[in-house]
Simulated scan of single mutants.
Amino acid sequence: MNSQKTIYYIALSLFSLAILGSILNYSMNYEMVVETFIKLGYPIYLIHVLAVCQSIGLILILFNKPHWSLEWVYAGFFMNFTLGALAHLAIKDGNGASAVICIVLLFVTYIQSRKIRDNSNELAEFGKYV
Rank of each mutant, 00 (worst) to 15 (best):
S69F: 09
F77Y: 14
I61L: 15
A11D: 03
Y74L: 00
L14W: 01
F126Q: 11
L86T: 05
Y8C: 03
E122K: 15
I56G: 01
A124Q: 13
Y110F: 15
H67S: 13
M1H: 10
I101N: 01
G76V: 07
L106R: 06
A85S: 08
L89C: 03
L70D: 07
L62C: 07
C102E: 09
K65V: 15
C102V: 07
I116T: 08
G76H: 02
G76W: 01
S69Q: 06
T6C: 11
A85L: 09
S69W: 05
V49G: 07
V130I: 13
E35M: 13
G41E: 04
T36Q: 14
E31M: 11
E122H: 13
G127N: 15
A11E: 04
G41Q: 01
K128T: 10
A18C: 04
L123T: 06
C102N: 10
Q54E: 15
S98D: 12
G94A: 03
G21C: 00
K65C: 12
A99F: 15
K128E: 13
S13V: 06
A99G: 04
L50D: 13
I101E: 03
V49R: 10
T36G: 04
L20M: 09
S55G: 14
F107I: 14
V52N: 06
S98Y: 14
N2P: 00
N2W: 03
K115F: 11
S98P: 04
T109D: 00
N119G: 10
I7D: 00
F107Q: 03
A75Q: 06
S120I: 07
D93S: 13
R114H: 14
A85G: 06
G57E: 03
I10R: 03
L50W: 08
R117S: 12
Y9D: 06
V52Q: 07
N80S: 12
T82D: 06
L24C: 09
F15Y: 09
I23R: 00
S3C: 04
C53I: 14
N64R: 06
V34A: 04
L83N: 06
K92T: 12
N64H: 08
Y45L: 09
I7K: 02
L70E: 07
I101D: 01
I7S: 01
A11N: 02
M32N: 10
S27G: 10
Y9P: 02
E125R: 14
A51F: 00
S113W: 07
I44T: 12
E31W: 12
G21Y: 00
Y110N: 12
G84I: 05
L20H: 04
L40E: 02
Y8M: 05
T36V: 12
A18V: 00
A75S: 10
N2L: 08
V130C: 09
E35Q: 14
F107T: 05
L20D: 04
I101P: 01
F15R: 11
L106Q: 06
L20S: 07
K65P: 11
P66V: 06
M28C: 08
Q54I: 02
I47V: 08
S22D: 10
